[in-house]
Write a protein that binds this DNA or RNA. Structure first.
Lengths: 208, 208, 208, 208
DNA sequence: GATGAATGAGCCTTCATTCAT
DNA sequence: TATGAATGAAGGCTCATTCAT
């Protein structure tokens, strides 16, 4: 039995990850986690503030790093001159998207937790937060290339939010499907085209 | 004292709906539901098998009816001749979509339950089920109008599943946003265009 | 074994009273109470809101009744004409004090709880509340018989509060000492004299 | 980084004092204390026997010193000749009382602990102990000036205990009220008069 | 069928104290 | 001595479900 080579801390993180993935945050049981890690419940409280603190320890560094990267990508794009932005028409360059996908695949379980097991924690709105930022930068982009002509303003905001959510949810579906990393990148390329075409069609219908 | 004109059964359903909406299935408390309905917990077990039975009673008839309608719509479309199918290129007719939206708005809370409060019940996969059927009929459609040329077969299935999910999630976002019924229909028209354009762009890139 | 002739509710109240008396509110254990009452912890929650609800059930009716009586006594005294008030010089009549003592002896344990085991509950300030009211009426009394000449105003308020507290604490000491009822009444007569004399001496030193 | 110039021992004492004052003995947490003192829980057990040992370390020297002083005061008074004792009639001289008040104000927090946060420790009966001694010397005093005529013997003992308790509680109320030192002394002078008058009135009603 | 009690387990959290390094 | 982990128990509270009347 060559187990327990890792410390209690590591084992707790692992077992917590497992439990949270299986049952979601609220249904996960600290007793279970501790038992699986061969330690006592109290052991958790020595190392983490509380249940949410345990969840946070797994997920927070990953979130922070991703957010940072994500905003960098946005800022980089927004820094391009009008022609280039217009030519790319809001599509991420492949390199940038690949970078983000790589990061997600490097931290696959953390992202699964964020997507499907964070109800009840302060990370509940993770996807919404991404969407919010993306939409914000889309507005900046629209300032540069011209306001959309295809949709009346009143609907534009909601619609933008909805399709942006769709885009991200699509990306996360790719992750959830458990595809390999390179495969995922190919999918995201197609998905990017899909959404970009759709976006143009309803927001800039005359641009073609 | 002319109150409680509704029977216990109705009150239980109403209060359960409320509780499930507020807390989701697993977090909902039968105690609370019974208390709000001015009756005893056991009163629930007289009328429903158990917690899930109560949830089911609210949601199942609506699901069944929707599924039936949904499949009818699909069958109708599939029954059209090739030219017509091809011309519509996989888009729902407005009338059909409106019919489904109307049904959802007529049973708004039940759908909210299905979308956001069904984790832990056998309805957890409600959206997936819709997607599965939609994808199935999309394959039939592809048999009729010709296999897609834009995507290699190996990827097509996953991709189809993903974008179809996006489409439905978009529709449910509309519902979640709390829009009025007619407004929702306008959104769905745009959303239909969005997805149809994207769909054509990646599956039938040469058709334009 | 002719026990458990009383219902669970009564047994819970009794065992709770016992436990609270022995350990004080915060240290009392609901598990213990339930065990002693031969029932489950949950049984408490069926009948009472929570720990404080259990304490409240024992103590609240007694508090309410006493407060009511107490204020009646005060109002009655305050309704007397100036000469009578002046003659009695703020002393309770024996009948009134006896009435209150009787009530306390009729609910002896409840008062012990209030005095010595209510820390952590909303009854923590029970004595202070009595004092507050007594002081309030002492001020009214002073308006009638003339402002005190013995103490500068700045000190009077604090001093009044302090000696009034002493008076009540003395009364409760009598209760705590476990004296018989009639004995207690004799003590309170002497204690009344003690404080009345002291009160006159410092607040109305020239009145003699 | 010139912080933590005090040693661990001192910091522990300080933080313990704080915690005990805030929460009382039983509710205080050694974890908290250690954390606030920037050290480990075990660190407490190296220096003190246990929780009560920590409390004792703060409070015991102060108690001992006060008791000593207190008994000195009593002995001094008892050493006076009969006439002087009689003339003062059991009142502390101002100098003696001031000395005790000064000592309390020099160790204010320790006294607050004794008064309001010692439940659960062997100092719980601190006030009672003071009262016991005071009563003991009052008896000696009565031997000197003559047995009281106002109260039958059977009641005298209890009564003496009760009013003596009142006296000390009054003194501690002054402390609790957070008054300044000199102000407190003025209050104690009035309080002394109050109790002395009351005492005479019930124990020696004919002496005036 | 209605009521309210009982069951039995589980939840997260906190504690004082001790052990091993 | 300092550190941090482990121990072992208990805390209040809530749950879905069943039983007895």
């Amino acid at each position: 039995m060559a187990k327990q080579i890792e410390g209690v801390y590591e084992r707790l993180l692992e077992c917590a990850e497992q439990e949270f993935l299986e049952k979601g945050y609220t249904e996960a049981s600290l007793r279970n986690i501790a038992a699986n890690a061969n330690t006592s419940t109290n052991s958790i409280y020595v190392r983490f503030k509380d249940k949410e603190g345990l969840f946070t320890a797994i997920v927070e560094p990953v979130v922070n790093k991703l957010m940072e990267t994500f905003i960098n990508v946005q800022e980089t794009f927004h820094g391009l001159d009008k022609e280039t932005q217009s030519r790319q028409m809001g599509q991420y360059t492949e390199g940038e998207m690949d970078k983000m996908l790589d990061y997600m695949y490097d931290n696959l379980n953390a992202f699964r937790l964020l997507l499907d097991a964070s109800y009840g924690t302060r990370f509940h709105n993770f996807v919404d937060e991404l969407v919010r930022i993306e939409v914000e930068y889309t507005y900046k982009y629209m300032e540069v290339v011209g306001r959309p002509a295809g949709v009346e303003d009143a609907m534009a905001e909601n619609l933008l939010h909805i399709v942006t959510t769709s885009y991200f949810e699509g990306m996360f579906e790719v992750i959830r499907h458990g595809m390999g990393r390179e495969e995922a990148k190919r999918y995201m390329r197609l998905l990017g085209k899909y959404h970009h075409t759709g976006f143009s069609a309803i927001f800039y219908p005359d641009s073609d």
